[in-house]
């Protein structure tokens, strides 16, 4: 079953018509013409709707339940994958998946939060909201990557770090801070891709990178539009306004100099053609990793240091 978002209603209607007509036509050549017209109309409509998405609508696409997840990408683009579990301190956080993978023959460490698709899996994975042990597992694997001189690839899709009692007791803030600290000078290339939702510090904790890429309909923000609306507007229903104000789309982040490249999505979003999306992501990772791997280590680190030292916009006197 395909799930449609509110603004996709016109698309749903045409697809429904198309399906019925296809069934009725049963290969009759006279129906072919109508079908072709309908398909053209569908593509136009899709292109139109998706070109004019508001930031809030884009947030819905970024959170689409059928959007490809980190595990979908890993399964499709890696030749082999060995998941590694646990932070060796407290537990294994299933909200983050991490392990060794082969990508075009190159060993890499790949890390990505996983929201889960079924309700059961969502509960198991805490809706993709990591606890400190998730970040510490990621840290352990980044250290492994550094030890064996393998690049790190992170696929970001999380509502944010989990705000819970246990998370605070076990040092959620320290876990995130430690990852930022470590990634700032990790002695291997890091490529991060925001594939869905980039939720604040919980996303940044695996997102300090030499190259930061973003899918066209992904979002990345300091706070969720709902959270921002609740605080600044005192009204969670103002989330669409907050999404607009926060400048959280891929195009905004490219303009602000935070993102290095936007990866275009198939018409109607990544979930409409996951295979094509995966292939595009694979190509982009290979390209950027290739460039990073050619740099001498000192140059790589010098550029990373400069990039984060400069980030921010200051006013005049």
């Amino acid at each position: 079953m395909r799930e449609y978002l509110d603004f996709e209603k016109p698309i749903a209607e045409i697809e429904d018509k198309l399906e019925k007509l296809t069934a009725a036509a049963q290969g009759r050549p006279s129906a072919e013409d109508d079908l072709r017209k309908l398909r053209t109309k569908l593509h136009q409509l899709q292109a139109e709707i998706y070109a004019g998405l508001t930031p809030w609508q884009r947030t819905q696409v970024a959170r689409h339940p059928q959007r490809p997840s980190a595990l979908d990408y890993i399964g499709r683009i890696c030749d082999s994958f060995q998941e590694l579990h646990g932070d060796r301190l407290y537990g294994d956080d299933q909200a983050i998946v991490a392990g060794f993978a082969k990508l075009n023959g190159q060993s890499v460490v790949v890390i990505g939060p996983q929201k889960g698709k079924t309700l059961k899996e969502r509960m198991q994975r805490n809706f993709g909201m990591p606890n400190p042990e998730g970040y510490r597992k990621a840290l352990r694997l980044m250290r492994l990557a550094e030890k064996f001189n393998k690049p790190v690839v992170t696929l970001i899709d999380t509502p944010g770090a989990y705000p819970g009692i246990g998370a605070e007791e076990r040092g959620q803030a320290e876990a995130i801070a430690r990852n930022l600290f470590t990634m700032a000078s990790l002695k291997v290339p890091i490529v991060s891709i925001v594939i869905g939702e980039g939720g604040s510090g919980g996303a940044l904790a695996i997102g300090v990178a030499d190259r930061l890429l973003m899918l066209q309909n992904a979002v990345y923000s300091v706070i969720s539009p709902e959270g921002c609306a609740a605080i600044l507007w005192d009204d969670p229903k103002k989330a669409p306004d907050a999404a607009e104000a926060l400048k959280m789309t891929a195009a905004d982040l490219l303009r602000l100099g935070v993102v290095d490249e936007i990866l275009p999505e198939p018409p109607g979003g990544a979930h409409r053609d996951p295979m094509a999306m995966c292939d595009a992501v694979k190509k982009a990772i290979a390209l950027h990793l290739g460039e990073m791997l050619e740099l001498p280590l000192e140059e790589l680190l010098r550029r990373r240091t400069r990039k984060y030292r400069k980030i921010g916009v200051l006013g005049g006197e």
């Binding site: 930022l180 600290f181 604040s200 300091v222 104000a245 602000l256 935070v258 030292r309 980030i311």
Partner: peptide, 26 residues
């Protein structure tokens, strides 16, 4: 915490400041 009104640039100050103190540590 981070200043919402500067959006993603505020978030990036976390990375900036963590990197700055990591240079002190080194």
């Amino acid at each position: 915490g981070a200043r919402m009104q500067e959006g993603i640039l505020s978030l990036m100050q976390m990375a900036k400041t963590a990197a700055a103190v990591s240079r002190l540590a080194e």
